[in-house]
Structures are given as C-alpha cells and as structure tokens.
Simulated scan of single mutants.
Amino acid sequence: MAHPFHIHPGTKHFKWSRDLPPVLTVLSGAEISFDLHDGGNNQIRLDNAETALSSFDFTQADPGHGTVFIEGADPGDVPRVKFLELETADYGWTAIFPGFGILADEFADQLPALRMWDLRGAAGRGYLESASPSPPFLGTIGIAPAEGGDHPMVPPMLLTGGNLDTRHITRGSALYLPVQVAGALLSVGDGHAAQGDGEVCGTAVETPMRCRLRVTVEKGGGAGAKKSWCTHGPAIVMAPRETLGAVGGDGREFMAVGVDADLHEATRKAVRGVLAWLGAEKGMERAEAYMLASMAGSLKLTEVVDMPNYVVGFGIPLGIFVDQGDHSVRV
C-alpha cells in the first residue's frame, strides 16, 4: 500500500479536538494510506495473550490516527471518504471487559475473557468456516468538533462521527461527514476483521490494519444542496454486496426474538436466546458464545411502533459454521 500520502502509527491521539495539529495536508481527491494500531493500541498481541488483560490500560484504548487537513473543506461542506483497501494483520482478538457489553452484569464472574483469532485464512479451526465472516472495516472514522476543548474518543458524536463501530463502512463504501471546522481534521482507527451489528460483548475481532482511502470534498452541503441529507450527521453509501467477499451461505440465520416494554431489556432477551441456542446446538460455552455473537451476530429492530412493547431480533448467519448442513438446523 505504498502511497505518497501515508500516516504511520506514531500519529496516535486519544481525544477529539479542533486544536489537534494536522500531521498531513492534502487536496480534495487525494488518496491516503494508514498503518493503524488496533482499538486496544496493540496492547493485546499473540506474544502476550496470556497476561495482556491483567495489565490492559483503558486510557490507551481507541486511538485515532491523524489528523488530516483537507484543503478546501469548510463548514457547510461534506467530505466523501471512500474506502479503497482494508488489510488486517494475521491475528485478531475479542475480549469481554468488566462493565462492557449488553450482558455485562451476567458475566461478572467470568471476566476477563479473551479469544485470539487466526486471520491467516486457515479454515477448519474452531467454529468458523472463514477467518472473516464479515468484511473488515474501521470502527473509528471522525472529524473535529466545532466545540472547543477536548472530547473523548468514545462515545461517537452525532455531527462528527468517531467510534461509530458500523460494520457497513467497509471496502467499496463511502462515509459522508458534515465539516465543522476548516480542513475537517479527519482521523481514523479501530480496525475490525469482523463484527456483527451491535457488537454485543463490547468488542469485535480487533486487529491492527492497513488501509487506503480517498477523500473528496463536496462543496456546499447546506439546505437544497446535493448532499443536504448528511449535513446533520454521518451518512453511509454501502458497497455492492458482491464486492465484499463475506460468507453467509444461503443467507439463512438463526434469530432469537426479545419482546419487552424496555428496548434495552428486549435486546438482552434476544441476545440470551442466541447464547442459549449456541450452547444447546453447537456445544459452546457461554463466554465463547457471547464473543461469537459479538463479532458475527446482527441486531434487528423488527418492530418498534406497537407500543408499549419493542420486538428485537438477534440473528447469527448459519453459513459461518463449519458443520452447517440441512441436518443441523430445523427450519
């Protein structure tokens, strides 16, 4: 991924701020490559997997890499960030940390938990047909906020993005962000080899990543302009499915349904249903199932208008299982 515009891991920062100095200035239309530390700032690796969680420093988590000043990007404009290449390292990890995840209170006596993933493409190890059941993507893509002062990397922000953790922002897709300060001051990070919608245990398959993207300024995103639909927050144009290389068999899923007057509790019920199915049908321990659900499952708000109850579905694609066949799932 050699490219004239390159950003190396030493450009990390742990805050969003309009006062961060840019490490690179580019014109609209430029392509930029990045070497990125993972969302844990490379604190968890193959060589220290047995001890990494005991010394994990959360102040070093979720680094952004940048910032990039885009010439001609002014408030009211919209940069289009097109993702051209995303290359994972040969390993990744999924962890359950105290206080994180939709079932955090139910896993307090099983923490911390860590799963290392072999991303070299070897199939047949574990319960995955492929090392990547969904395409790689960047969990963090954001620009500087208009408000002064320092802002945390997490949670994401409405107008400027950040730690969006949206798996559809992958190769071939484009993200639009409304500029808040001159130059936009773009930063990226938090590479994921795979993740399901929801990231239910709090992490996905976290991995260092190399990426290449193109930034193009679309002028005048105000009311009535071409991109007025994204001036109030991030927007995504997803890649055609045939370019993604995701697995999933014939598209069938196992989906548990949670129903409750509280959306949070409905979601918890749906996740518990999938964990129970993975234990009963796939023989998986609960923590292992929880991590698989985090990186391969998909939350769906299937019904949110017939008050007082919400209906939430949580699905696992059947095509990710090595032993998948007509005999293994009753339909």
Rank of each mutant, 00 (worst) to 15 (best):
H3S: 09
H6R: 12
H6G: 08
G10I: 13
T11E: 13
T11N: 15
R18A: 07
P21C: 08
D35K: 12
L36D: 06
H37P: 02
G40P: 06
N42R: 11
L46A: 15
A49S: 14
S54N: 09
F56N: 09
F58M: 10
T59R: 08
T59D: 07
F69A: 03
F69H: 12
P75M: 08
P75I: 07
R80D: 06
V81N: 14
F83Q: 10
F83S: 09
T88W: 03
Y91M: 11
G99Y: 00
G99Q: 00
A104C: 03
A108Q: 15
Q110V: 09
L111I: 07
A113H: 15
L114Y: 06
W117A: 05
R120P: 02
G121Q: 03
A122Y: 04
G124D: 08
S134I: 00
L138P: 01
A144D: 04
A144M: 02
P145G: 01
G148L: 06
P152N: 03
L158H: 02
L159F: 01
T160I: 02
D165S: 05
D165M: 05
D165T: 05
T166C: 10
I169D: 00
I169C: 02
T170P: 01
T170N: 05
G172P: 08
L186D: 09
G191H: 00
G196S: 00
T207G: 06
M209N: 00
C211A: 14
V217W: 07
G220Q: 08
G220F: 11
A223D: 08
G224C: 02
K226A: 15
K226D: 14
K227I: 13
T231K: 14
P234N: 10
I236V: 15
H264E: 08
T267D: 05
A270H: 02
R272P: 05
V274C: 09
A276S: 14
L278K: 09
L278W: 09
E288L: 11
A289Q: 06
Y290H: 04
S294F: 02
G297N: 01
E303C: 15
P308D: 10
Y310E: 12
Y310D: 12
V312H: 04
G313I: 07
F321G: 12
D326F: 07
